[in-house]
Write a protein that binds this DNA or RNA. Structure first.
Length: 244
RNA sequence: CUCGUUU
């Protein structure tokens, strides 16, 4: 039992899903029990592989064995959100509440991301209101998700508002924030602002990565400035980031 | 040791 749990905990991401699934089934057939961590890992793996029936069955079994926790709910909520299975996502949220948990910040962020990316801004807004009423304080994921969704809509004003809130919160922008801002300004056709972001992140000790440069290249491309885009490729090489 | 944000 210890060995199976150990293998799943430390080798899950290195094994193909079907093989990992085989190991897990074998474990159960031997009469061994997973633990909370390995249950959550398997839920995540099944969810990301779109194996929802397996994930659902496992969740049901694990809950009977008292092996589920808040992360288990977050994990399936995320899986349903990514798959745009909104009804199932919402029923997982309701089950989370029914079983005595409050809706987690992770769950709210998943829903915001899912509805935002779907372009269902009506529901996105209603989830955001629920989050605000919950009095949860936001973290980087929440702020960055909001910036990303507003950015994808081209709503630069609300991007700026969230950024201000993020700075006032004391958290401050992180690498994801800067990259998301570069993307947002690119979509809005504001390349010079995207360039400013790169400068600002460097000043704050956060080095641009492959995402940053690719977003900047895309920003120049959207603006029709192909020469400048090519310059970025040279610049990233100079900074030790190999173009992909 | 496991979940949510930027290709």
């Amino acid at each position: 039992q210890e060995m199976y749990n150990y293998i799943i905990t430390y080798c899950a991401r290195a094994l193909p899903v079907d093989e990992l699934s085989r190991v897990f089934d074998e474990m159960l057939q031997c009469g061994y029990s997973p633990n909370n961590i390995t249950v959550n890992i398997m839920l995540d793996v099944y969810g990301k592989a779109n194996l929802f029936r397996k994930a659902g069955k496992l969740f049901w079994m694990a809950r009977k064995m008292r092996l589920t926790d808040e992360i288990s709910y977050n994990t399936i909520i995320s899986a349903y959100g990514k798959a745009k299975m909104f009804k199932r996502m919402r029923s997982a949220v309701r089950r989370m509440q029914f079983h005595g948990y409050s809706v987690s910040l992770e769950a709210y962020t998943c829903m915001l991301d899912a509805y935002g990316k779907e372009g269902d801004l009506e529901t996105f807004r209603s989830v955001l209101e629920m989050l605000q009423e919950s009095n949860c304080s936001y973290d980087h994921y929440t702020y960055n998700t909001l910036i990303n969704i507003y950015g994808e809509q081209g709503w630069i004003e609300e991007v700026a508002e969230v950024l201000t809130e993020l700075k006032e919160s004391g958290l401050g922008p992180d690498l994801y924030t800067y990259n998301t801002l570069i993307k947002a300004y690119g979509i809005a056709g504001m390349v010079e602002k995207a360039v400013d972001v790169v400068k600002e992140m460097k000043e704050n000790g956060i080095e641009p990565d492959l995402y940053s440069y690719n977003s900047l290249i895309k920003a120049y491309t959207i603006a029709g400035m192909v020469e400048k885009a090519i310059d970025v490729v040279k610049e990233m090489r100079g900074n030790g980031i190999e173009p992909d």
